[in-house]
């Protein structure tokens, strides 16, 4: 008789690492915040408003969210993902440097 998979597998996210090309459990990954926020080349040229926006303002949408993840207990690499924050379903994951989906 086949054993049922343990419950916890259902209770956490499965994330597809675009480098390993495998869906693995969330505990292998570290979340790394909103994606596509470009570090300003010269902060001293920025106004306080722009600096605040870079440091602190996040889109925090209810819905499609672009975010960075790191496969910290796997290949170790950063990649980007699109996830729906209302359902937690991943729409896509793609390699760092690829254009925003």
């Amino acid at each position: 008789m086949r054993r049922q998979p343990p419950q916890w597998r259902i209770e956490m996210l499965l994330i597809h690492c675009p480098y390993c090309d495998e869906a693995r459990a969330e505990i292998e990954f570290a979340y790394a915040g909103e994606a596509h926020i470009v570090r300003p080349p010269d902060p001293s040229l920025m106004s306080d408003e722009e600096w605040q926006r870079y440091l602190f303002i996040r889109s925090n949408p209810r819905g499609r969210h672009h975010e960075r993840w790191r496969h910290i207990h796997g290949c170790g690499r950063f990649f980007n993902a699109v996830r729906d924050t209302a359902t937690d379903k991943f729409e896509a994951t793609y390699k760092a440097g690829e254009p925003r989906r």
């Binding site: 419950q7 916890w8 209770e11 956490m12 996210l13 969330e26 505990i27 570290a30 979340y31 909103e34 996040r58 925090n60 209810r62 969210h65 975010e67 996830r83 924050t85 209302a86 359902t87 937690d88």
Partner: peptide, 16 residues
């Protein structure tokens, strides 16, 4: 949880 979400439920490993 480590990620932004509005799902109002968290992962089991956090509870464990």
């Amino acid at each position: 949880d480590q990620y932004v979400s509005y799902s109002q439920r968290g992962a089991l490993h956090i509870v464990e």
